[in-house]
Nucleic acid binder design. Structure first.
Length: 578
DNA sequence: TTAGGGTTAG
């Protein structure tokens, strides 16, 4: 009889059904004091409710357990602390901690591990560390909990220390530390550790591969991302919603959005995140119409968009120049879903209007925003001013931007470019002087290129690459050939106080030119070249890349900070608008 | 019957 109920609870997949089982147990007196299996059934129900995302029901059951005069055991504490971590319910968890202490159960390995996890999730990592340091016994779970505690707060140094100190690591230790590096943007280290993990004989699991795919997406490492996909396929792994979303994102961010669409179409279940990732992916590639079609399809399928999904939809409008659709979508946030647009949504709208030359409408929107515009709003406005050469409005934006970000190089660079391109060289010079005086430095440009599964990194003016001589020679050849096709170096982009010849040299050392030269000598004729940049593409590199795509008959896919450029036969999919 | 690792934007 008992084991029948136990199996029922264990297999139950619906909280409603669980409540029915609970009612039967109550009616049968199995949850009342005096019942020999009362603690056991309480525990089973607490665990099941937490598993089915009803942690509040778990809390209620725990208080029932105490009120009925039962003494909770170590299982009860493990289960209730997990529920408290999920909600998260700091005070209830603390009471449970105090009670476990009173009953002498806090030294139990399982309870202590649950406490470490609970304290780290509810924000007091020092307490988690104290429990870890003072624990009577430790196993890999204790270490793993501590690693993920540090990962959660972004303290990778300490996470790595704990990882390195572990006597024996398991798959979860590797997964936790790889996820940490991947989430912290240290993708190269994440992938390095992933190789080490395999060298040490650990078989990759789905959860680990999700992080690995995120690292590939971040670095634009298509080959490695494809390897993961192939690995999953050859092992007949089920592509769950996490893996599917990670694959879609990886393909989109590595320039193969159509492969992402294929994964998306084949996914048996799609949640909001999967839809949002696909919509954003299409938007990044300038395929705004398709992205918006998908957004509507998502709404029809009953998935309710959140504020991030709206950012995806608005960005799609921006990259495709769909002003009216953007206005409609922005209005629908509140009118259809009761979501009040945040500053980011205003930023998208300002971007959309300004990019399409509606500078006055963009300014009106900025002026009547219900919150203070932030740097991204002013930045979007200013980029529009730059494109349409509206110096007066650009200066207006700069006044605000400099107050918000007095040390950001981007503002000064953009302003100097605006002055230079509208012929106000004295003003441009003044900006350069100001930058120098304030010791504001440009963020160095960095480009990544993956050749045969290895990611190579180039910084602006970088001479550290083993083949730098060949690369520079190749660039000279490229420059000669594209000059014949009409290339004129655009020296306005150079903000250094150097002479004209030196300016040309400085342009030729931009990280993406070095990366393209390297890619041309390292790949066979006709192969697509894929680059990932940390900054926006500069006008000169954009012009040069268009011509290279024509002269060398190569497709060149460049991912910049926010979107993709596909250079083909002398033109770019961004239509020179970025 | 216990505890630990995963995906989207800015």
């Amino acid at each position: 009889m008992s084991s029948n109920f136990s199996t029922l609870i264990l297999r139950c997949s619906d909280p409603k059904h669980l409540r029915e089982i609970q009612a039967v147990l109550t009616a049968g007196g199995l949850l009342l004091s005096g019942s020999s299996s009362g603690v056991f059934f309480h525990n089973s129900l607490i665990r099941a409710y937490t598993r089915l995302s009803s942690p509040c029901s778990s809390l209620l059951l725990f208080s029932d357990l105490l009120r009925s005069g039962f003494l909770p055991d170590s299982h009860s504490f493990s289960f209730i602390l997990k529920a408290c971590s999920l909600i998260p319910a700091r005070f209830t968890g603390l009471s449970a901690h105090a009670l476990a202490f009173k009953l002498g159960l806090d030294s139990d390995l399982f309870v202590n591990n649950s406490l470490i996890h609970f304290h780290s999730v509810t924000g007091v990592i020092a307490d988690a560390r104290l429990l870890f340091d003072r624990s009577y016994q430790r196993d890999s779970v204790s270490y793993n909990s501590m690693i993920s505690a540090y990962v959660r707060v972004g303290d990778l140094g300490n996470a790595r220390n704990v990882f390195d100190e572990m006597p024996t690591r398991d798959g979860i230790s590797w997964s936790a530390i790889i996820a940490g590096y991947a989430q912290g943007g240290a993708s190269k280290e994440a992938l390095r550790l992933f190789s080490r993990m395999q060298e040490e004989g650990f078989v990759p699991e789905g959860k680990t591969l999700v992080s690995v795919l995120a690292a590939c997406a971040h670095m634009g490492a298509l080959e490695q991302g494809k390897w993961v996909h192939g690995y999953l396929r050859s092992n007949g792994a089920k592509i769950d919603v996490f893996l599917g979303t990670a694959l879609i994102d990886m393909y989109a961010k590595c320039g193969e959005v159509d492969l992402g669409l294929k994964v998306f179409d084949e996914m048996p279940e799609k949640n909001l995140l999967a839809w949002t990732t696909m919509i954003k992916g299409l938007g990044m590639h300038g395929r705004g119409e398709e992205a918006l079609q998908l957004f509507s399809e998502m709404e029809r399928s009953g998935v309710v968009p959140d504020d991030i999904a709206f950012i995806g939809a608005l960005c799609a409008c921006t990259h495709a120049g769909l002003v009216d659709r953007g206005r409609q979508i922005f209005d629908s946030m509140y009118h259809c879903y009761g979501l009040r647009p945040k500053v980011e949504h205003y930023g998208c709208m300002v971007d959309l209007l300004a990019r399409n030359g509606l500078l006055n409408e963009a300014k009106e929107l900025v002026d009547c925003m219900p919150m203070e515009p932030d740097a991204s709003v002013w930045g979007a406005f200013m980029a529009g001013c730059r494109f349409y050469r509206n110096v007066e409005l650009a200066e207006y934006a700069v006044k605000h931007l400099i107050q918000l970000e007095p040390n950001s190089s981007g503002v000064y660079v953009l302003l100097a470019n605006i002055y230079a391109s509208s012929g106000r060289h004295a003003d441009a010079k003044m900006v350069r002087y100001l930058m120098k005086k304030k010791r504001i430095e440009k963020i160095p440009g960095c480009t990544l290129v993956e050749i045969r599964g290895i990611v190579h990194q180039f910084l602006v003016g970088d001479t550290s690459h083993a083949q730098i001589k060949d690369i520079l020679m190749k660039w000279d050849e490229i420059e000669d050939r594209i000059r014949l096709a009409g290339y004129v170096p655009n020296k306005k982009e150079v903000l250094l106080d150097i002479n004209e010849d030196e300016k040309e040299d400085a342009l030729g050392r931009h990280s993406e030119k070095l990366a393209i030269a390297f890619a041309l000598i390292s790949t066979e004729d006709g192969a697509t070249i894929r680059l990932v940049k940390n900054l926006r593409v500069c006008t000169d590199c954009h012009d040069a890349t268009k011509l290279i795509s024509k002269v060398y008959e190569r497709e060149i896919v460049v991912r910049d900070r926010t979107r993709f450029h596909l250079f083909k036969d002398g033109s770019c999919t961004c239509k020179d608008f970025w």
